[in-house]
Design a protein around this nucleic acid. Structure first.
Lengths: 199, 199
DNA sequence: CCACTCTATTGACGTTTGTTCAATAACGCC
DNA sequence: GGCGTTATTGAACAAACGTCAATAGAGTGG
């Protein structure tokens, strides 16, 4: 549009700009609905520069997903003040619901969408889920509430999938279920499952 | 290769052939890793014919996913012989585990991958999950084991996501958990959740 | 048995889009 | 104020998507 004197950023700044833009654009578009053309125009750069920084389109996608996942992990980091492990769990779930509510489209498209992607994307997703569930073990297991066996590990993993589904489904259509009820479901389900499995 | 006299099938036969081939090819490839060129060559047809039948690549993908999902629903259809609702549930889960074991790659790539796709793909996936979970209600609810409230509906939906995760995760790495234990987890988790939520 | 019609099928063409690479110009430094 | 480093460009290539008028297989009626 206006006079476009070439703007030169440091590599870190440019990477950050492109990743932020990628998160924004890929929130309501799938990867192949996003052309490098559009991305470059939106960022005010040439197509070639994207390849200089990320190599190819898929690598860019992976970097964006990693970025989104890191955000999720950071913003749901547990605060070490609570004493009661159940209260800690409840706080974690609240933070998680907050995050999904604030980033609904992006969560579905980027985080969840990673499951259907290639090996690398699934690995990123798995790693994130691993971090989230490990918190459960390191925080709650200290109180010996949750035994650490292969079957229970598997069950907790399943519980995490359930939690994701509950929140996404509720955000998409909250009809008939209050936020408090949702949080209650999330927090009570883990003990219920563990007790049901060990009994 | 050999003399290729143009083979002319009925539209139904051709559609079926292409969908079958699509299921096979998309089991270990993502959509954009599959070129129409390869598909056409593999099917022994020209590229144009695919567009004649499906319009565009995405519509083809959707049709393939719908096909895979229909297979899943059909092959896990409950047998109306069992009496005890808990036994029926156990039978359903066994059929489900059988299916996922036999179609691991395809399940992940097609069924699960649909979650990360566009609106239409997610609708197909949701519809399939709806059919699967509705079975729970129509079969088990008759015995009044499961009350039908919005919160419980949501919970059952979450349980379905958990079941999927458990099975996929177990198939990917069964270390430390026997098949019987898995089935036990699957079958016992639903009652445990419902009881935990209604208490 | 031949011509004829219907329609499944082709193949060439235009266009979009991912990717490469040598050339260019902005910024810091002497 | 010139100079070198390197972030950045833009043109050129290739692969793949999608379109459409032309083609030919298969049944049908004479």
């Amino acid at each position: 549009m206006t006079a476009s004197t070439r703007i030169r950023l440091t590599p870190d700044e440019r990477r950050a700009q492109l990743l932020d833009l990628g998160v924004r654009l890929l929130a309501d578009r799938s990867l192949d609905e996003l052309s490098i053309d559009l991305l470059a125009e939106e960022a005010g750069i040439s197509r070639g520069l994207l390849y200089h920084y990320f190599g190819n389109k898929h690598a860019f996608h992976e970097a964006v997903v990693r970025r989104a996942v890191d955000d999720l992990v950071a913003q749901t980091a547990p605060q070490p003040d609570a004493g009661d492990p159940l209260a800690t769990l409840a706080a974690s779930m609240t933070a998680y619901v907050d995050y999904v509510e604030a980033n609904h489209a992006g969560y579905v498209s980027l985080v969840k969408g990673a499951q259907g992607g290639n090996e690398t994307l699934r690995a990123i997703y798995d790693e994130a889920r691993g971090v989230l569930t490990d918190r459960i073990f390191t925080e709650d297991a200290q109180a010996d509430l949750i035994p650490d066996t292969p079957a229970i590990r598997l069950l907790v993993r399943g519980w995490a999938a359930m939690a994701e589904e509950l929140v996404l489904s509720w955000v998409a259509d909250p009809a008939g279920v209050s936020r408090a009820e949702l949080l209650q479901l999330l927090a009570s389900s883990l003990p219920a499952l563990v007790e049901g499995a060990t009994a």
